[in-house]
Write a protein that binds this DNA or RNA. Structure first.
Lengths: 122, 122
DNA sequence: ATTGAAATGCAAATGATTTGCATTCTCAAG
DNA sequence: CTTGAGAATGCAAATCATTTGCATTTCAAT
């Protein structure tokens, strides 16, 4: 079966989205209303197939986004708001890592913590 | 009261450690055995005072480490093992972020995902 | 149609962390 | 020294996001 209608629908939602989504957001957007565990299982499936990626922050749920995108994040430690940006310098390090750690890199996570415009002066 | 004996003990454990520790590891190391919630509350307190930092990965618990250290991580998506390294290029980006997002950076998180030496060929 | 493997729904379990509340501690004021 | 208020602690229960077990359904191949 593999890419069932739920999974396809969920993948579409994620690929269309301009920002990373949580499982709950995906669940709510989905008009055919699968079960919550189906959403989680679909997300796991899609991530294993490398069609989507996910990231967790200090608290709150994971965020999911299409593997076609490469995001980095600004995570507000006050309100939890995330913003995305895509300027990336990580590749400079990959060779260094491989040689020194024999660690096979598949991805990297890079985000700044701090205060967003709203929380900055509260 | 502020820096009570539990909190001081916990801070010492973290500062002495050569690697980031989980709440549970800290709890077990602590010879005076405070309550688990005391450990969590102490960690929260110490992080608010900027004496320690923490990072979460995709699953599993948070890791805590001294603010005097600046770590980056290699997170194995297979076994969850973390390794640390400290070569850092993030500061190149901070100015860019500040100008473009009005986001006040307090910290950044950067880690590679992949397979560690053991899991690579399993 | 029949069958077997995989996907789904539902409810209960899980793991890490947090919370409410009663108790205990600390330390400055009397 | 005693006291009393505010903070810290212990304990048990709650919480949140996610996962799991199990019974049922679906689908594709025979």
């Amino acid at each position: 079966m593999e890419l069932t209608k739920w999974r396809e629908e969920i993948l579409k939602i994620i690929e269309k989205s301009k920002k990373p989504l949580t499982a709950e957001e995906i669940y709510k957007i989905n008009k055919f209303k699968p079960n919550f565990s189906t959403v989680y299982r679909a997300l796991k499936f899609l991530e294993e197939k490398n069609l989507i990626k996910s990231i967790s922050f200090d608290k709150g749920p994971k965020y999911f986004y299409s593997s076609k995108k490469h995001y980095h994040f600004l995570y507000c430690t006050n309100c939890g708001k995330i913003e995305v940006f895509n300027k990336c310098i990580a590749s400079q390090l990959e060779n260094f890592i491989y040689k020194n750690f024999k660690f096979q890199i598949t991805d990297h996570v890079f985000y700044f913590k701090g205060l967003c415009e709203n929380c900055k002066e509260g």
